[in-house]
């Protein structure tokens, strides 16, 4: 049924995120979230119960934005990588495979500092 996604994890994760919010805000009911993401409540319900494979990239991104989840995390949990990231890796697959392995055990703050922090200067 699933390809790449961790069995029983993806649907649980989506439901967990949504229900946490629904506990405080009725705008996060199954019906309302599904409508805002352009899918049917029945389909979202099946996704949450892991009865169908995770949706495509476009819907996953909408779900991530709706549930305030990081888009890459959402895609990774669904066993996918974003099309832009795929293009980056495919351009230099060996180099990026090496890079990811090298960073595997580095702490998160160190990875963030190396890869992503924006340096301030004189202005």
């Amino acid at each position: 049924m699933k390809q790449g996604a961790q069995v029983g994890k993806f649907g649980d994760h989506i439901r967990g995120l949504r229900e946490k919010r629904a506990g405080f805000d009725s705008a996060f009911s199954l019906r309302q979230v599904a409508t805002r993401c352009g899918i049917t409540p029945a389909y979202l319900s099946r996704v949450e119960r892991d009865e169908v494979p995770p949706p495509g990239e476009e819907t996953l991104v909408k779900l991530a934005d709706e549930l305030d989840e990081d888009r890459d995390v959402m895609l990774a949990l669904a066993g996918k990588i974003s099309s832009d990231l795929r293009a980056v890796i495919l351009a230099r697959p060996r180099l990026f495979a090496e890079l990811i392995r090298a960073l595997k055990s580095a702490p998160e703050h160190a990875v963030l500092r190396i890869v992503r922090e924006v340096r301030d200067g004189d202005w």
């Binding site: 340096r119 301030d120 202005w123």
Partner: peptide, 20 residues
């Protein structure tokens, strides 16, 4: 993009301001 990734192709003032 980070400005320091292109330090050899951007002027000194741009690099010294940092940022993107």
């Amino acid at each position: 993009r980070h400005v320091e990734d292109f330090a050899d192709r951007l002027d000194h003032a741009t690099i010294s301001r940092g940022g993107v």
